[in-house]
Simulated assay, not measured.
Amino acid sequence: MEPFKNLINAGTVAHAGQHLQRAWTGFDRPRFEALANQGLDALELKARMLQLANAMRATLPDDFNSACTVLEASLAPALPLDAPGEPVGLSNAQMSTGLAGWVIWSMGEFVARHGQHDVPRALTCLHALTQRSTAEFAIRPFIQQQPDAVWPVLARWANDPSAHVRRLVSEGSRPRLPWGLRLQALVADPTPALPLLRALQDDPSSYVRRSVANHLNDIAKDHPGLVAGWVRDHLIETTPERRALLRHASRSLIKQGHAPTLAAWGLASGLQGRVGLSLSATSASVGESLGLSVTLQSTSHQPQPLEIDYAVHHVRANGGTSPKVFKGWKLTLAAGETRTLDKRHSLKPVTTRTLYPGLHRMELRVNGVALAEAAFDLSR
């Protein structure tokens, strides 16, 4: 798989230079490209993005309003949405007319760094940028430093015609956005964002609704009771779309076996019956996969809704272990039914987790309760 960092490359720089010069004839394109390309291949993704933003600072007009006008004039058409509300890419012909995609991250960084003295103008620019990629990272310093100026704008944007802008309202204000500045005030108290999430949870775009679900899942990490109550209250007379959103928002709490959340979904009762877990092997190597076989036997006279996950207690570099919960199955076990479930668990390395050799314990959780376990020895 091509590393993300390679998506900001010399071609990206040349494309940006071309359209910034088209937008402003006074733009010093050679200087911009020289600054942006300096040692670019040796840099990681964020450092590449910052280098392009610094090159823009050195070559765009000193006046912030004028600089934003240049950025806006350099843009391609807004990214279209497909029928369910997911973003789709621009054609080569559309891209040839202006900027979109990864370079927008650098443009947003420029606005975030140099627009704190003129929040209304900065937000107007981010409104345009987010429709060509996303401004979810760039808006966060404004929420952190100028909340009284930003929240009323986000409230208006919750009704914006563009689904990209409506998504920014939710995604940009997530307390714990991956790769983004952590908004500690919202980690402590998410109240300012709740009216926005309430307004957006029934948005016609699945792109927006998924962001709302992820935002609620963020909140659940620090305020599980709030999200459990939200799910309980908003499941009443709900639509299939909202139900799916609330289910996705509940995913971490369900994995953790959070009792109020399980109760909201009708999963408060433990399994009435027996369960067994076996693995296809007692040893495996990094890069392979391991088979899981689960046997469920009901002793109940009623159907049982079950949420079945499994936790792998990964060995850490210091020799200890830490659990990671993986989704398994969601099913209804009929009265007196016996059922066998099979699954493969990948042991391929991923960027967010290093696999270390040693004895790994696997724990099966049914409706949040650990009921069976097995172990395997992992080697390199």
Rank of each mutant, 00 (worst) to 15 (best):
T354S: 13
R316Y: 01
S96H: 14
S300L: 01
D160Q: 07
S346M: 04
P349R: 04
T295A: 12
P357I: 06
M107S: 11
D377N: 14
H164P: 05
S250D: 05
A335M: 07
I308K: 03
W179R: 10
S211H: 04
L177C: 07
R174A: 03
A73K: 11
T12P: 00
E363S: 13
K255Q: 09
T295N: 09
T299W: 00
W265V: 08
R57Q: 14
W265Q: 06
R156S: 14
L79P: 12
L177V: 11
P80H: 13
V212S: 00
I139S: 07
V103D: 01
L50H: 13
P152T: 09
A311E: 03
P161F: 02
I236T: 11
T332H: 10
L129F: 06
R156L: 15
W179G: 10
E72P: 01
H215L: 02
T97E: 11
M1F: 07
A23W: 03
T191V: 02
G101A: 02
E2K: 09
S289Q: 10
T352R: 13
H223V: 04
A14M: 07
W151A: 06
A76D: 07
Q38P: 01
G115M: 02
A374M: 04
K330F: 01
G98F: 09
I139T: 06
D233S: 13
A149W: 03
I104C: 04
V88G: 08
R209I: 02
H15N: 11
G358M: 13
S173R: 03
E337D: 13
W329K: 15
P192V: 00
R242A: 04
A47N: 11
Q131R: 15
V70R: 08
P120E: 11
H345K: 08
Q144F: 09
A100I: 00
G368H: 04
V325T: 15
A73P: 11
P77G: 14
G225F: 01
A73I: 05
A16D: 00
D342L: 13
Q145P: 02
R182W: 08
F32L: 06
D160C: 06
V103H: 00
P147T: 12
N6F: 00
G180Y: 10
E72R: 14
H127F: 08
R353D: 10
G320N: 12
I219R: 06
P323T: 06
T340R: 15
G89M: 09
K46A: 08
A163E: 06
V13K: 04
R380M: 03
P357A: 09
L186D: 08
R132Q: 12
A193L: 08
V366R: 07
T352L: 05
W24T: 00
L197M: 15
G225N: 14
N159E: 14
T338S: 15
R243H: 12
V119K: 08
G98L: 10
R232N: 07
H127Y: 13
V88Y: 03
V88E: 03
A149E: 15
N65V: 15
R174Y: 01
E33N: 05
L331E: 04
G368A: 05
R243I: 06
S300P: 07
A93F: 11
A317R: 14
D342G: 15
V275I: 12
A220P: 10
L177F: 05
V350G: 13
V275Y: 02
L216F: 14
A149K: 13
V315W: 03
H345Y: 15
D28T: 07
G108T: 10
A263L: 11
F27S: 00
A311M: 03
T134K: 05
